[in-house]
Amino acid sequence: MKNAYILAILFAFAVLSVQAQKSNWEVPADKAERLSPATFTPENVKSGETIYNANCVSCHGNPGQKNFVPLNPEPGDPADAKFSMNLDGELLYKIQEGRGAMPSFKATLSTSQVWDVIAFIRTFHKDYAQEVAAEVIRSGLSGGKVAIQLVYNEAKHTIDALVTEVKPEEVKAISGADVKLFAKRYFGEAAIDEVKATNNDGKVSFSAPSDLPGDTAGNIELILKLVDEEAFGEVAQSAVLPVGKPTITHSLIEKRAMWGTVQKAPLWILFMYSGGVLAAWSVIFFIFFQLRQIYMAGKKDEETGVVREEI
């Protein structure tokens, strides 16, 4: 009996700790320690407020007014301790990545826009004192610029990229850098394959998405991005390559259909309608003609003087 008791308590603890863990949003240490490269200015705060009102207010409400939407889990008020306890880097990570009901803003807002939002939120945190990143170290570079070459290897059906650092005196391969490949679509960029790292020669190879529709020749505009913005800045290179499926688009109103315009009406209905109208109205006009015949017959009798007895 006693054992059962203890088991029950243990069980309860286990459940609670799982739940606690669930509500605890762990941020990887290196990300948590990130700092803004510049001191927050009133301009940053103002821009952050605009962005906040456009993207965040519908769930989190206005900071300090606790008018967030009562969801489960609670989105919370950004002025509260739950938020102020976070490091700048933690806030950055959470806004960018999202979790559950909290959408990811990675593709919507640039890093500097997210910093602006953090600048705005921090104005509600009384004891906050900003720490600025000592120096922006482009750790991956040694004074040069990133250059990316994208080529399509038809034989292996891969998209090969060469990532180098170009300096006036030399061109050096960038190795071990995470890169991501995207295909340009009408409203955004669709990721192709996983994040991959460049090898010692600065090369990386993605399998070509042969089933992804391109233009009539299969051309797709591809974009290669370096993932580590801290190390390389925002670097992207695009190229149009024939990696996709050649696609001939068809208009949705090519065929004749009941819902089409008159020009696109099914032939049978055009014939039936016009045939019916023509048949009925030619008979009606024939009758009008007959009425005229009656009149003409009477007129002829009148003229030729055929006298009839009055009826």
Partner: peptide
């Protein structure tokens, strides 16, 4: 605000989420 909608072009086999702007097949 909740990432409910995706919109895109079927010819491109891609839709983009209106909230996160993430583009998927």
């Amino acid at each position: 605000p909740n990432g409910v909608f995706y919109f895109g072009d079927e010819n491109e086999d891609a839709v983009t989420n209106g909230t996160t702007k993430e583009t998927v097949r």
